[in-house]
Design a protein around this nucleic acid. Sequence first.
RNA 1: GGGCAAGUGGCGGAAUUGGUAUACGCGCUAGUCUUAGGAACUAGUUCUUCACGGAUUGAGGGUUCGAGUCCCUCCUUGCCCACCA
Length: 805
Amino acid sequence: MTQDNQFYNHKKIDIKWQKKWEKTQIYTASNTSKKPKQYVLSMFPYPSGAGLHVGHPRGYIAADVYARLKRMQGFNVLHPMGYDAFGLPAEQYAIQNKVHPREAVLKNVKTFEKQLEIIGLSYDSSRKINTTDEDYYKWTQWIFLKLYNHYYDHKAKKAKPISDIEGKFKHLSQSDRDKELMKYRLAYEGYSEVNWCPELGTVLANDEIIDGKSERGGYPVEKKLMRQWFLRITDYADRLITGLDDVDFDESIKTIQKNWIGKSFGHELEFEVKNDQGFDFVIDKGIKIFTTRIDTLSGVTFLAISKDHDLLKNNEDKFSKIINQTKSWSADENDIKIKKGILLEGIHAVHIDNKSKLPIYVTNYVLSDYGHGAVMGVPDQDERDNDFASLYGINIKETKIESPEIIEKRLKLKKVYKYKMRDAVFARQRYWGEPIPLKHDKDGHIIELKEKELPLKLPKVSSYEPIGNGESPLAGISSWVKAGYETNTMPGWAGSSWYFLRYMDAHCKTGLASTKSIDYWRQVDMYVGGREHATGHLLYSRFWNKFLYDIGIAKTDEPFKALRNQGMILGNDNQKMSKRWGNVVNPDDCIKVYGADAFRMYEMFLGPFDSSLPWSTDGIIGTRRFIDRFWRLAQVIKTQNKNNKNIKTDNNLVSEINKTIKKVTEDIEGFAFNTAISSLMILLNNFEDDIQSGKNINQKDFIDFVKILTPFAPHVTDEIWSMFEVKGSVNISDWPKYDLKKILENKVRLGIQINGKLRGDIEIVPSKSEKEVIEEARQIVKNHLEGKVIKKTIYIKGKIISFVI
RNA sequence: GGGCAAGUGGCGGAAUUGGUAUACGCGCUAGUCUUAGGAACUAGUUCUUCACGGAUUGAGGGUUCGAGUCCCUCCUUGCCCACCA
């Protein structure tokens, strides 16, 4: 045997097949095929400058294995890949290196593509996308305008055109009408606090702040009110919860999303506020609170409001001292653990039920953006209220728990639902994002861009740094500002919230994808990606899809029918892979030494797909040996079959082959790749045993083995397939079917227990009668039974024989 | 503090879902081949015992003919959320 036949030459053969696949376009999906469809999608990457480490491809390989199985099973498979490239990292790279972010993106995409290419993933290369391409972000802007133009009809439970309710505000002046409508639009203008760093003169993302200081330079960071755009995701809160019932996601992901949305049921009350004797504060508004524990109403001894509460804002002159004091309460987390409060002297609230006087405190433990920014303090029942009351010497009254229904009736209260989730801020004061396609005219009215004016392209700027007042670099371009264009750009997650639809028809010029293509593909059947996107991307894309469904673009309410999450690959030292720890392993190096197939198999063999595992390059040698042994086996079988096509494979091996077909099929479908590979290894051991003991193997039986290995090791299997002079590619051949009868004909070994302890075993054909089996078993363990009476005999077919004495 | 996972050889892990625990792979040991080392191949490898045997799935208890798997108590580790009224 030549050296070439001893070892699989991955350097030559891997590239040969990767080129051939690309040339013959065997992985290109059809938008009109009559075959059943299967849309298998990996979450697309953000191409960072660092490139891939061995953790990244895990999800891609898994999705690829699944896609390859589905393709061989006869499905028309859509398996695309693209890049999500707007956002902070590219912008920062551009600032540091004084290049256009687009250049950085193109460079990084190239690196990623090269790294992915050598893994041998079966992507449809005709459907590549990049969220920063103008003909892609044109449609991101288009969707934004649709959101701007729609409101949520809570009765109909769907989005409707804003024009439907314009009539209601006909009588108002234009600017008042604009204001009213803004309260309904799904994309709306508003204000929110941002992290402002005066020293750097920029707004910072949460990631850029460490311990309350800027990551760069360690300068202090404060809150600043900034004009923003928001998306009214809270309108979809209920549907985002109920939709989870219809999708096949891991329960933990569903729970994370439900907790994030945080729906809770309770009551709203308003406490009257009065002047204390001798004071002449005139406050006509009461304090509204939300509670989930109306049954504890009798225990209320104080009210607590947040430092941003309207009561303070509306009476700034009277409470100026207090307001100034609260400003020094830092947002530092450790600080929040210690409860602080200031009594509002001169006023008090009146208990809604028993009319007792309740002191009002401004506190640091009441959140301003949940409920009404105020709580009723029940120190007897609530731990937090108790902490606070103890610190400030507030009366703690024993609570008489009453039924909510009775209180509801007596005080005429309504049931309400509250959500923890906030509307999503949809604006960044940055350069590298999609421009928001709106103009402000000189009177301040907002004018939408028309579809034919899209895309609104990012203008050239001299610097990508925000201008000194915290606004986006776009605000520094006089022509842009003069034209009245919005200076905020969209956040990083805009483009990734609908990309799964674009793949259906990646080059469509008339819409985000043609109606026909969306009708055909409908939704993603299998989505694979990291668990860390549970409250970000995964929630946003479900929201956008639901909106697009409401307006008739998307064809299903949910974008992803099923989701599988990969666990993280850790470094050798059990820590997250990062340059910082020096534990990064590069996939290119592994592939260079061991080949793509050994690398792919090892990534899948490491352990359960959804658990985090430490990487150890030492282990790849195992799957590499497997590839070499498989390769040698192919040569032997080829020689055996050269002259005689009618040789017969041993029955035991035929049974093992069928068993393995069943196991591998079921395991890939269940994302249990590690056990699929171990069963393939066992099968190889069986083949080798037969060869070693001089038995013949028919090449047809071996070809079944080649096929079931293909999803994991598509290069070596295609080479072997061609060796047997079969036309085409094994990658688009038929997936073998197993014969249950052939599995059952084989002998099985059963254990024999006495009083639960194993005392022997027996090899039988499963079809043997119960009586015979038991009698045989009794003979085998008869020295353990001597002189004893068998009280009970248990025989579980195919599993165990158990005697009780 | 709350929620969710998970604890099995030297290591990664498997166990038909209550039925022969430690599959498969790494590593290790011995052998074959080699000037040597490596690679490759062959055999062995949970612990204990010369052996027969016995013990063993984080600890303890329970249900059962039978428990890694189910129930109770406790311990440990990881992840997510964290004053949500």
